[in-house]
Amino acid sequence: MATKLALKELIKQPTRLTPGHRLCAGCGASIIVRQVLMAIDDPVVITNATGCLEVATTIYPYTAWNVPWMHNAFENAASTISGIEAAYRALVRKGKIPDRNVKFIAFGGDGGTYDIGLQALSGAAERGHQFLYICYDNGAYMNTGIQRSSATPMGAHTTTSPAGKKIPGKQQFRKDLTAIMAAHGIPYVAQAAPSHWRDLMKKVRKAVNCGGPAFINVLSSCNRGWRHPTDDTIEITQLAVDTCYWPLYEVENGEWRLTYKPKEKKPVEEWLKRQGRFRHLFRPENRHIIDELQAEVDRRWERLLHLCGEA
């Protein structure tokens, strides 16, 4: 019997990510990792792309991981887990190790997933390895000091898309990676947020039991890059969901389904104004960027509603 998704039950689970890691105060990544691992009762083996989560949790000779964990490089969390999973299948088949129903999880940030690791992820997904890839998407290369990635929202100030006198932050809309992964036709793809923990954990459970590759894109606040107080992490994530900047949905065997519909769709401005990375957009001359961003959020939301049969 799987552990009930109730906090009174979950506190009885052993801690899989210990304190003493060196992620920044208020980091969204470790909250996500804890929720993901709490949702899985079976043994897990993890690979981790280079990034904040990787460096901050395993500064030699210390590790915050109470589960088998491997970091290989930046772009290859998916190919590395595919090798481990292949080894597991081979060794179980040859009777060298028992089948313990091990779940294989890869964690990567948006840089390691949307950008440099996309090819490895796509390949591993196409090959059909049984693994769950979790992208914790904080919308920039935070580990190297907040550089823009293809997940960075339009208009955001990063250190390589600075809000300058002439160019007001990032010029492009973000890549829709969740849809790209859905287009792979793998059994399970979802988008989640730690503010909606039960939704996230249910998705993780579906993902690790789907019998094939699964991908979950999880919005992860980075207070250093987003420029908000450290205690706003969850609230700001909730706002991203309620403005439909980050809709919660799943694609199960090709069926698109909205898993959360905000009672009232808030203007994206409410999410933007809480974050220093968008501050320059509130100058009158940049107002049009907010409008463009809103239009794009609306367009993607309508498309999603349509795909989910809600339109």
Partner: peptide
């Protein structure tokens, strides 16, 4: 030593 970061 799994989880020895607690010592940090």
């Amino acid at each position: 030593e799994a989880g020895n970061a607690v010592e940090y």
